[in-house]
């Protein structure tokens, strides 16, 4: 998106306490935070976790009705905040603010195609948890173990397509998956039509898929959320 639209909801600050953390893959973990009752979000929203004099954004994974914040975080080596989230003591409190963003499910007559790279699966998991169903989901990851929330999402999806770029023999996920990039899958297998595309994750993925949409899927809508 090239315009900076002002947020509709006033984002406010809260204190949230980390109450659980579990490993999802070699480099990714899930954290759960408790927050005050007054905070509300919709699937697709993100929050900021404030740290030192800056902040980082995270998209919620869970159902907004479940009254928690569940986040799926990639540990960035030498990063500022993600190592803190990975190592801090249980019960640590953080200042958060939100909700932020415009990335949310817009029902339409066109078929929704969700495309995620890595942790970009987070908002789609939240949408699936919130009851969105019947979509095609294409998830690009390096290794099969990074297909986070597969079970929950697969049951809500009409089609679930894992795209693994570095399949290894030990990986149980590789059998029913596409080996290659999400763009390879889309250009080879997505039938020509107009869709509502929702793209979330790395900017290069968003750019490449958007160009594919321009070239091959005229009349489609494209909604994007860039993580980095």
């Amino acid at each position: 998106m090239n315009i900076t639209a002002p947020p509709m909801e006033e984002a406010k600050s809260y204190t949230a306490r980390m109450t659980a953390r579990r490993r999802l893959s070699a480099h990714t973990f899930e954290i759960t935070m408790e927050y005050p009752d007054s905070f509300r979000f919709v699937a697709g929203h993100s929050i900021r976790i404030h740290y030192q004099d800056t902040y980082r954004h995270y998209s919620m994974v869970n159902d907004p009705d479940s009254r928690q914040l569940v986040l799926c975080v990639r540990l960035v080596q030498n990063g500022l905040l993600s190592p803190v989230l990975a190592d801090c003591n249980m019960g640590t409190s953080f200042t958060i603010s939100g909700p932020y963003g415009y990335f949310r499910f817009n029902p339409s007559p066109r078929h929704p195609v969700f495309v995620a790279s890595g942790t970009g699966i987070a908002p789609f998991a939240s949408m699936a948890h919130a009851g969105v169903e019947g979509f095609t989901l294409i998830h690009g990851v390096r290794y099969g173990e990074e297909l986070y929330y597969r079970n929950q999402i697969e049951s809500a999806a009409k089609a679930y397509v894992p795209c693994i770029t570095q399949p290894s023999g030990h990986d149980s996920a590789i059998r029913e998956s596409f080996h290659g990039r999400v763009t390879d899958y889309i250009s080879r297998y997505l039938s020509p039509a107009s869709y509502d595309f929702y793209l979330c994750g790395r900017r290069e993925m968003l750019r490449d898929v958007t160009h594919l949409v321009d070239d091959r899927f005229p009349g489609s809508l494209v909604y994007t959320e860039i993580f980095f």
Binding site: M1, N2, I3, A5, Y102, N106, D196, R203, E204, L206, R207, T210, H211, V213, D214, S220, L221, V222, Y223, T224, I226, F228
Partner: peptide
């Protein structure tokens, strides 16, 4: 975060409502 997306390099852009124009 980087400012540029690269999705506007071919003379098109996205509307807030999702259309590529």
């Amino acid at each position: 975060m980087k400012l540029y997306t690269g999705t506007g390099d071919r003379g098109k852009t996205s509307l807030f409502s999702g259309e590529r124009v």
